[in-house]
Design a protein around this nucleic acid. Structure first.
Lengths: 149, 149
DNA sequence: CAAATATTTGCAAACTAATTGCATTTATGA
DNA sequence: TCATAAATGCAATTAGTTTGCAAATATTTG
């Protein structure tokens, strides 16, 4: 949960990036700022976001391009999104293939990442994703008899 | 490109994992062993794999579950696959959002990964993916005027 | 080695996530 | 406040992947 202070004020974030402040954009940013972990578009709708799915997708793409949100793909085909302000520094994620929830792991400094991962020159880097998959605490308990793919 | 020796013989790999040796499974394994980088199902078909797409997807899922192949998701919604024998140790990938090609980066020892990424106990780990996105060498050249998303 | 059983494949249809075209609405800047 | 550019909603579409079921293939058993 990211505290909503001046660094994470939707209106301010949009202004800084030169994006127009529309109701949908502010609503999406607020939802992401209030989320405890990355969410999928379905989650946003389920949580009551009252706008067309196409608008949500377009908004998320815009915010991702401006680096206001991070996009985390999963092999199930669903992308997850989280706010990318300085109060939510880069970190790996854990995706539970059973309940399809995402958990944030401990933040990782970019220096340590750069120490281990080197990109050939001439490649222009844009984004990094580190994700683990498996079963979360709840779903790995023996009693739970759900999808274990 | 992985040399096709005894460690990477499709028939042998299937036997070790207790999977029946069917023509489609062998063909998919051969295609992956011969690939220089992770491929998507579309690539396999384009390269001449003569089997139903449903069978390719089912086969890849089976091989992934048995840890014979690694599955690498992308935010574009397409999954990529690579062989996971000992001649192809774990490594991060670079995905070019322009030409949609994947490049393998330098291998990373699991010890170093474990030094930086810790998973809470009670989570059962199954898979790790580290991927960078951006533009590859070719697509980042100024003359190329294609998708730069 | 042949028959019985279990597994896998191909085909068609279905499903999910995400994108797109276009008319309408909303935000911005003079 | 008005003119212009940008963003939204709706409906339709695309792309990737999965699923049910009958036919084919592999494995097991006698």
């Amino acid at each position: 949960m990211v505290p909503m202070d001046e660094q994470c004020d939707p209106t301010e974030l949009l202004r800084e990036k030169g994006l127009s402040r529309t109701a949908p954009r502010i609503a999406v940013l607020e939802a992401l700022i209030g989320a405890a972990a990355p969410v999928a578009v379905n989650d946003l709708v389920a949580e009551g976001l009252k706008m067309d799915r196409a608008t949500i997708y377009r908004t998320l793409n815009t915010l991702r391009d401006k680096r206001l949100v991070r996009e985390i793909p999963t092999a199930s085909g669903t992308n997850y999104y989280e706010i990318a302000c300085r109060h939510n520094p880069f970190h790996p994620h854990f995706y539970c293939t059973c309940c399809r929830s995402m958990t944030c792991l401990a933040p990782l400094s970019m220096e340590s990442v750069n120490r281990w991962i080197t990109l050939p020159e001439a490649f222009s880097f844009k984004n990094l994703v580190i994700s683990l998959t498996g079963l979360c605490e709840r779903c790995s308990r023996p009693c739970s008899s759900r999808r274990k793919e």
